[in-house]
Every structure is written in C-alpha cells, then in structure tokens.
Design a protein around this nucleic acid. Sequence first.
DNA 1: TCTGGTTTCGATAACGTTCTCGCTACTATT
DNA 2: AATAGTAGCGAGAACGTTATCGAAACCAGA
Lengths: 341, 341
Amino acid sequence: MTKRLTTIKDIAKALGISVATVSRAMRDTYDVSAETRKMVLDTAAKMNYRPNFNATGLVRSGTHKIAVIIPAITNYYFSTVITGIQEYALEQNYQVMLYLTNDSAYWETKVVRELSLSSVDGLLACITYETTDFSHFEELVEADMPLVFFDRVPESVRTSVVVQDDYTGACTATEHLIAQGYSKIAHLAGPRGLNLTQQRLQGYLDTLKKHNLESYGVIHSGFSDENGREDMAALFNSSSKPDAIFSVNDRKAFGVILWLREHGIRVGEEVGVIGFTNDPTSKIISPSLSTIAEPAYGIGRKSCEVLIRHIQKQSYPTQEISLPTELIVRESTRRKGIGKD
Amino acid sequence: MTKRLTTIKDIAKALGISVATVSRAMRDTYDVSAETRKMVLDTAAKMNYRPNFNATGLVRSGTHKIAVIIPAITNYYFSTVITGIQEYALEQNYQVMLYLTNDSAYWETKVVRELSLSSVDGLLACITYETTDFSHFEELVEADMPLVFFDRVPESVRTSVVVQDDYTGACTATEHLIAQGYSKIAHLAGPRGLNLTQQRLQGYLDTLKKHNLESYGVIHSGFSDENGREDMAALFNSSSKPDAIFSVNDRKAFGVILWLREHGIRVGEEVGVIGFTNDPTSKIISPSLSTIAEPAYGIGRKSCEVLIRHIQKQSYPTQEISLPTELIVRESTRRKGIGKD
DNA sequence: TCTGGTTTCGATAACGTTCTCGCTACTATT
DNA sequence: AATAGTAGCGAGAACGTTATCGAAACCAGA
C-alpha cells in the first residue's frame, strides 16, 4: 500500500551492526556505547525512521492508545471534556481513539464489544442515557482492562469514576433561587436512570425540604432545548404555575427562556431560570442565563490521569473523584431585572 | 499487564486443528468447510476471542485507523464535522484517532511528525491558521500516506480537499444584504492566509462590485465573539459607519450583535448582520442571526469517504470537492424587524 | 600469565496474525 | 481402474520489534 518504510533492520544493515543494538540505542542508553548510540540516532533521523507501533505493541502488550466512548461531541460540555482528555493524553504520550455512541445503547454495546482488547490500553467512557445493561463493560473489567467512567456513570460496575459534584451543585442552584425570593420552584430533570439526574434531583428536593418548600413539579426528559420547551408547556398547563425553574442543564434552560419570551413572561422578574453547565451560549442568550458551572476541562484531564494511573499500575486503587462546581449569577435570576451582565 | 487474552492458537489447540485453518475460518469461507468454520466461530465466541490488531496490522501493513487532525472541537462546526467523520468511518470499519492542535502550528507540526506512519492508514487534516510551512504534510505525501484536507486547506500541498463553497456562500450573503436594502456593507474577515478567508472575502468584494457598491471596511481577525466585538468598536470609531455586517462566521457575528445591543443600535432595523456556519446558537440569540449554513456533517462524511477511497485504491485520483451552502434568513437582516423567526 | 569482572554487542526466540506452499483425500472423468 | 482435478487443511515463513542469553573484548588485580 504505502511505500516501504525504513525499519530498524535497514538501519542495522546500513551501519553494519545488529538490530538488537539499534533497538537498544533507540530508547535507553545502557548497554550501548555513547558513540554507537549517536551513530544510530543520526542515521535513523537521516533515513526518516518511524517506529512501527504494531510491532512494539505486539511484543510488549501495550499500545499507547486509549479509547474514549462518549454519546456525542456536539455540545459544549462533552467537547470540552474531550479537549481535556486529549491534552493530558498527549502530554503523557498516549493517543486518543474516539468513539461516538450517539446516545444509543445499541451502538455503545457494539463499539465496546468490537473494541479489540489488544488495540487499546484503557477505556474512558460516558454512558448513554439508554444504557441499563452494563455487561459489555463488566466483561472488560473482568479481562482486567483499565476503565474509568466520567460524568454519566453506572452504579453497578466497580471502577474508578470522575464526576462533578452534582448534588452540591443542585443544592447551590436551589439555594440561590430561594435567596432571590423565588418559592414556587420546579425542576426540569434529566432522563431517568442516570446518576447525575438522580443527584441533581435529590439536591433540589433536599434543599426545598430544608426550607420547608414544596416542589412545584419535576419533569424528566432529554437534554435538548426542545425538551425544555415541551416541559414548560406541560408545566404551565397546570393550575399551580411555578415562579422559578431549575433545569438539569443549560441547553434545556435555553428552551425554557425561549418559551417564556415567546409567551410574554418576563424572565427573572416573573420567572427565574437557572441551568447547569455554563455553556458559552448562556452568556449570549437574552436575558443571560444563571448557571452552575461544571469543570468540564478538569473532568477530562482528571479522568485521563486516573486512567493512565490504572494502566501503569494495575493495583492502583479504585477512585471516586468529585470535582467542585461554581455558581454563576446572571440576569435570568434577577428579580428586579435591570442590571446588565 | 492485562490478563492473557485468548489467541487464535488457543482456539486451534482446543479444536485440534491448525492456526491457519482458524485464521481462514475467521474471515472468508473459501478453502474451509462449513462445519469447521462453524466450529471455529462457535468456540471463538465461547472463549471470548478478540483479534489482535497489532498482529494483523503487522503482517498486512494496514491498521484500520485514520487520524483526524483539527484545531479544536469546542465549536459547532468542528464537532459536527468530526461526528460525520466518525460515523462514516465506523460504518466502514475504520477507527478514528483524534488529535487537537489548538490552532498552534507548533503542535500541528509535532503531532504530524510524531505520528508513526505505521499506526494509521490515512490522515484527515484541517490546518491551523498559523500554519505557513507545510513541509510536515509534504513529507507524508511523499511517503505515499493518503491525506485529505477539509475546511481549511493549504494551497501548496497536492492532495484531495473537501470544503464548502465559501465563495458562492459569501456571494449569497452579500446579495441577501443588498436585497434587504443595506448598502454600506462591511466585512469582518477571518485570519489572513486561510483559503476560506480569501474565498469569502472575494465573494463579498465581487458581489459589491457587481452592484457598484463600495466596501465599508474589511477587518481581519480571529473567529471568536470577542474578535467580533473588538472589530465593531474599531469599525464604528471611523466617520463612515456601515449599515450592515457580513461576518466570516457565526461566533464572531454573535459578538457583533452583542456589541450593537450594548450600544443601543437596533439589529436588523439599523444595522443588518449575517454570519456563516449556522451554529445552533444563531437561533437562540436575540435577535436571531441570519446566516449561511455550512454542510458540516456532510463535509465530515465526504472527506472521510474520499480518504478511505484513497486508502483502498492508491491510484484514486485527487479530488477537489466543494459542497453547497444555504442561506438561512432570520431576524438580524430584517429591515422592519417585527416578524418572528 | 591467569582469573574475574565489566562493558558492549550479536543471535535468536517470541509476540499473534496472515500468506504461500504443498500435501492428502475425495470426487469426477475417461 | 487409472488419472486429473479440487476441496480442505497443515507446516512454516514472514511482518518489525523487544527480550534473553551468551559471547567477545577489554581491563584490573594478583
């Protein structure tokens, strides 16, 4: 197919030495004299030598590759996580293979099952919201494949996980709404079965209870702005209308704001809205969206770091890492909505 | 490191047949009886066999992997392109390795140079806007490595390219502004040296000339909304203020709209704004942004398709593919700005 | 001069596949 | 019944690298 590449043998022949010496000279310096080492390195550069990872990977079982399995990348959170993963991986000389599941459990299973165990050293995964059966991941764990989950994590599989502190973030969001004077608070929750959905819901409920407030409704649905619109229509159809909305994520909150605007309801003044993520669009939408900022980049770096630890020390203990979130106040939760962002 | 995996040999031993037969049974049916084939497949499944890609890649030089080199993924366009690439690749049983250059020519060069030629079958690249020296790519071409550029393409390297029709898109955008009654049109251009910057600028200039209009300013800068704001400040500092802005992309146009709003200038009515991309935020921003929709997903699929063609037939002729764009009219270019989106 | 210890290097097996031969046993043809 | 042809399979080399073992060369000490 492609032109024949120069191998270690070619260098050996050119120099009249053995392949073993060339191989040694390539990486460590011990067991080989300084001059031969220099000679080898020079001619290697001259002949434009590149190591064949198939061969090295074959003999020492270990490719320097990690697989990332993620539902999608066309949103701020996921794309930023990947960026963090990618940067840390490259720093550590690991390469990233990307697999998109498109939030389909079928594809997730297929991808994980077909993923040859020999082609990657470890796996970084964020499950789809459809996934209920985790046997495809359990098989990997049983084969001792290092595996780390981030953001959306299953409860059953016993591995390391890296998440943001969803529970505390939800508490902070709800506290903020209450502090701003809202009392009839509803929650637009994520899909059922997802850990983060449960955590954020619980934070919301616990904070309400702490303040002796009733929930003004909880609706479970997807993560899109369309879902947000639909949920608002359902919510305002009932007799007891909320005066504030805590959305499980920003995109859904965008739908909420758009719906409120279209229905002539003043965002902030009449109905407060807070999201979760800190998507860049939350600064652009009008009114701008208050939100709980997630450390997406940090999640990416950290989960990659944990994975590589697992790869390099097979006895590295299982970690459960939770990164802090941060409240960002903007216009959508200002009662007297005059100030700018 | 990870537990010993079952190999083809284990299957052969378990069945009392040779490895060659097992190997053959695994892929094509010819030269092996239906019953042995079934036997092999069954026990392979039973023993949880996964092929070792290092070994297959070694003997038949060809890994089923392609590398994607891209400045970033944290924006709509790039993440959608990657999604297209990924989906087509998976359909064709190729795996995607992701490399982010962060728009740094240094990292681009480093990544491309360190990319072992033996570890991927081909390369899909979108250059940084810093890159001026393309020798790292030319080396690949000389080594017969299949290489396809998309979106941002160098002019010098002789390979296949897949882009949207930037020139015609820019013409359409400018025509639209003129048709809406704007006549003092300025262009916020992209970084110099990028082909798409040049194409969009030229489309703008040619359309103005066709209508006997003067340009009300061209400013080159980056792609961010911050850049858009800065450029607007510079533009409105002069005595001859434009009544319409054609921005090289949507994110920059968001900055424009934000700047106009902050300065009490009515978007659409007083100053028309049109972008390029069709970022989902363009529907969310208020007023919503008219734009030229780019076929991002299609670009991804198509460039991956061309690359795989090149990989599978080394004599596949070099292609220059240009995908059509589409005008999307929203509020930011409505003179009497009452209508909804 | 002999011994023992380093340093530097070469031969060779191994990693898990695929590929090229060639062999056997069976079927078809005359 | 003899021959040719074919289907099915096995033996072994090959891919490019690393790892193991041992050999050669050199040096120091007695």
